[in-house]
């Protein structure tokens, strides 16, 4: 499923609403998650999962082809941990 399909499915369940509005709603949600992570905040959605930011220190890496040392800057990466209910739902019948 891609974003436009998600919007269509939600619009189908809310016939009184313009599809454009549904699109804005989906974008507002995703935008808020991105904004929170870029502030370094955590986003916790019970039953779904939690987004957080992990910080990776600077390190010396290697170019795997040439073996040359390269400096890798410190960086932050987004991280998602699946929620308990989601994990259970993925493994219901097994």
């Amino acid at each position: 499923m891609i974003k436009s399909e998600l919007v269509q499915r939600i619009a189908a369940q809310n016939p009184h609403r313009y599809q454009r509005d549904v699109e804005n709603i989906v974008n507002a949600i995703l935008g808020e998650i991105i904004a929170a992570l870029s502030r370094g905040d955590r986003v916790e959605l019970r039953g779904f999962g939690a987004f957080s930011v992990k910080h990776r220190p600077a390190r010396t890496g290697r170019n795997p082809r040439t073996g040359a040392h390269v400096a890798v800057e410190r960086k932050s990466v987004p991280f998602f941990k699946t929620g308990k209910e989601m994990r259970e739902r993925l493994n219901r019948e097994g």
Binding site: M1, K3, L6, I10, N14, L30, G47, M86, R92
Partner: peptide, 25 residues
């Protein structure tokens, strides 16, 4: 609507389907 968005994503994943949200992930 926030609940519905999460529900639709969850249902999709439960069916084993990939959910691609452009510019998000």
């Amino acid at each position: 609507l926030v609940e519905l968005v999460l529900k639709e994503i969850t249902d999709c994943l439960e069916r084993g389907e990939t959910v691609k949200l452009s510019s998000f992930g």
